[in-house]
């Protein structure tokens, strides 16, 4: 049973001719501009952004952790070429064999393919003593 008031009221609700044509064009080109699908685009974008941000944050924390590592446990660089010996980024040159070897201040022990080397502090600040194959050698810092 049709109702006159109902019909009159709903007759006011209709799209304009331009809107009808635009909707038809969208349908025929299969390009619907759905807000629901736009929601998914936004959600996907936000999730991607979160991933990128978390990657950078984690990377930052990792770098910070690395910087907190004390210098003493940094990988030691040992480079020995003939009479030259590098220890903790400082290079030393062999200047002789040590005879008096009492009261040495222990610094470090390094083991490489050639064997075990014990490093002691020399009398002077710029010298070190290395015990190698039961001999003590005096090394002096190379001024470059």
């Amino acid at each position: 049973m049709k109702n006159k008031i109902f019909i009159q009221t709903l007759n006011k609700v209709k799209p304009s001719k331009e809107k009808k044509d635009k909707m038809l064009e969208n349908i025929l080109t299969k390009k619907t501009t759905s807000k629901i699908s736009m929601n998914y685009v936004w959600k996907f974008g936000m999730v991607s952004l979160c991933f990128v941000c978390s990657f950078f944050i984690m990377n930052g924390f990792y770098q910070e952790d690395k910087s907190l590592v004390p210098a003493s446990i940094e990988p030691r660089t040992l480079m020995e070429e003939s009479n030259e010996f590098c220890y903790q980024s400082i290079c030393y040159e062999k200047i002789g064999v040590l005879k008096n070897r009492t009261g040495l201040q222990y610094l470090d022990t390094i083991e490489d393919s050639n064997g075990k080397k014990i490093i002691y502090q020399g009398e002077q600040k710029d010298t070190i003593i290395i015990k190698y194959e039961n001999s003590y050698f005096l090394y002096q810092k190379i001024e470059r």
Binding site: K14, M23, T33
Partner: peptide, 30 residues
């Protein structure tokens, strides 16, 4: 189109969402 538009408008109460759903209905038909 007017009939489908009226039904969708009763639910969505705004023109932009109504247009989206009307397009989807006819796209499904197509």
């Amino acid at each position: 189109v007017d009939m489908v538009y009226r039904i969708c408008f009763l639910y969505f109460k705004n023109h932009s969402d109504t247009e989206d759903i009307v397009q989807n209905v006819f796209l499904k038909l197509y």
